[in-house]
Design a protein around this nucleic acid. Structure first.
Lengths: 155, 155
DNA sequence: AGCACGTCGTTCAAATTTGAACCAAGCGAC
DNA sequence: GTCGCTTGGTTCAAATTTGAACGACGTGCT
């Protein structure tokens, strides 16, 4: 009951800007990817992570953690991507419980095809509307946020 | 085809931090509101907007725009809130098509009850992990983003 | 070997979200 | 007035997301 430390003007402004920017950007990205390449944003993020991983593969749990989704949510999306032939599953050699999600050739091509348009949108939504200093500050602040939340989850 | 202006290291870092922070924070906020007050974050945002509006009421379309959701999504959520007695609908005097969503007394109390815990979480996730300067830069940058996207939508 | 316990991924039902289709009502030009 | 076009909200089916429950498998200890 003794917890009311309200937000002042600036703090409120920061929070609202953060929330609103998240929503607006997410919405646009989602719509653009969907109509241009038939991919959802979560799916695109999965492809990106896989393409950046050694051998183009990652364990399910690790991938779920990276893209910040639930385990069941990932199972669903990987299922979709598998149907589409963009990803395949491979059982894990040392650990019979484990499953690797592997980016296929087709998946890599899909990503190559989707990337330019996506990058353009990211630029016009977030990157190019800010100065270098603003961008740097933004990255700095938000990195602190993610680092804090990430380590807190583990601790 | 001639659109490859890729992101450099810093730009990539900014984008990833933005994405990851969005996801992590959204996830936490959602879970906390859900288990403490049985509210989803979209629902909470609706209550906040209504409570800030004159007479505690807003037109459906305006509200949908404010909380950045689809019209049908708002219809659904308002339906839920109405069932819970936190909001009621009122038809619009001058315009027979229009509908006002109105915050009820019960809705205001609910918000009062939920707010402290929510603010605490916002603090510990975003506000209190940053310095004043960082927070100010963040608000500055993200405001620019939202302003840009908002005006672009209308233009 | 046998057990207790934690981890990995899937399955399941329930809740939510979205765009398209739709209906009713405003609005302007003729 | 009334035809044609836009707006405001709802309805609908389809896709997605989530946590809880589950089954199978590792791991450490005895």
């Amino acid at each position: 009951m003794t917890e009311p430390r309200w937000l002042d003007q600036q703090e409120m402004a920061a929070w609202h800007a953060f929330l609103e920017a998240s929503h607006l950007v997410a919405r646009r990205v989602e719509q653009q990817l969907r109509e241009r390449e038939g991919l959802s944003h979560p799916q695109y993020e999965i492809l990106v992570r896989l393409s950046a991983a050694p051998e183009g593969e990652l364990r399910m749990t690790e991938l779920a953690d990276l893209v910040v989704t639930s385990k069941s949510g990932l199972t669903y999306q990987i299922g979709k991507l598998e149907q589409a032939g963009l990803v395949r599953r491979r059982s894990c050699p040392g650990d019979d419980r484990g499953v690797y999600a592997v980016l296929t050739e087709s998946g890599r091509r899909k990503l190559d095809r989707a990337a330019p348009g996506h990058v353009d949108l990211v630029r016009s939504s977030l990157i190019d509307v800010l100065t270098r200093e603003q961008l740097e500050s933004l990255a700095d602040g938000l990195s602190t946020v993610t680092r804090t939340l990430r380590t807190r989850d583990r601790g």
